[in-house]
Design a protein around this nucleic acid. Structure first.
Lengths: 137, 137
DNA sequence: CTACGGTCTGTAGTAACTACAGACTCAAGG
DNA sequence: CCTTGAGTCTGTAGTTACTACAGACCGTAG
């Protein structure tokens, strides 16, 4: 059989450590509804499981990728499913998709410029730096 | 000859309109040193040129891509050149490059999931949604 | 020359966290 | 059993990165 590991229960500091999240941010995300209110022990301590870890990691990474709280809320609603029709989901998914692809394109341009810069910059003074020109157009 | 267009002088509201930036954010970026203090008219009005537009666009897009103010400051220092040695520039560029590539990878994973979701979601109820699983690992 | 729109500064408000204060819980040690 | 220290609880206050507003000044069209 599989091991018993997926039943692990964590408390808040452990969840923070597993995800790299600030301790207080977890509470903030619960207060604002991004994270579900976790079950509590008899004495009121929050208990988390693997699903909480996944969801929190997703939120944190999405934030690092420049999605706003509202956008992430939208993505999570897709995940959470529920009240929306399939047509709505499809439309919103494609909206997000366009957004993501635009980000990828921009990042690729930045990547190219940085790679070029790094290559050019092999011992000499930096040349007329083309970073701004490449990115700001 | 080339045209005379590159000598255009803008004031703050025009710069905001050209870049989609909030009017006040421009002043904020000047106060915090991301944007240079622009020249002023005799009566104290700020005047901007094309270089300001480029730099501001870069900052705005970098923010949308999830770079922190400090990271952008780092990127701009590469552009601004000045006091640093070529070795420093190279190292920092490669650091940024790794960061950018990680973002691209993550966004591509999100893209894939969203595309799959959009494809699956063509008239039926949403299946067990794999978004979290794909992203949170 | 005045109306009205744009700009100036400083300051106050908002979003998304982040830190702190004081009370409670709980496992370990004596 | 009792203490002690580390972890948790709540509410609230502080920080960062903007965003909006107030009151005074500028500038140009009628």
């Amino acid at each position: 059989m599989a091991d018993h590991v997926s039943g692990k229960r964590l408390q808040r500091a452990e969840l923070a450590r597993h995800t790299g999240c600030n301790l207080e941010t977890i509470r903030y995300y619960e207060k604002t509804g991004m994270m579900p209110d976790p079950p509590r022990t008899a004495s009121g301590y929050r208990v988390y499981d693997d699903a909480h870890i996944s969801r929190l990691r997703f939120i944190l990474r999405a934030r690092e990728l420049g999605f706003s709280i509202e956008q992430i809320r939208g993505l999570l609603e897709l995940v959470d499913g529920g009240t929306q029709t399939c047509a709505e989901v499809k439309e919103r998914t494609e909206q997000h998709l366009a957004d993501v692809r635009a980000k990828i394109d921009d990042l690729k341009r930045i990547e190219k410029v940085l790679a070029t810069t790094a290559a050019q910059c092999s011992g000499e003074d930096i040349p007329e730096c083309p970073v701004l020109e490449a990115l700001a157009s």
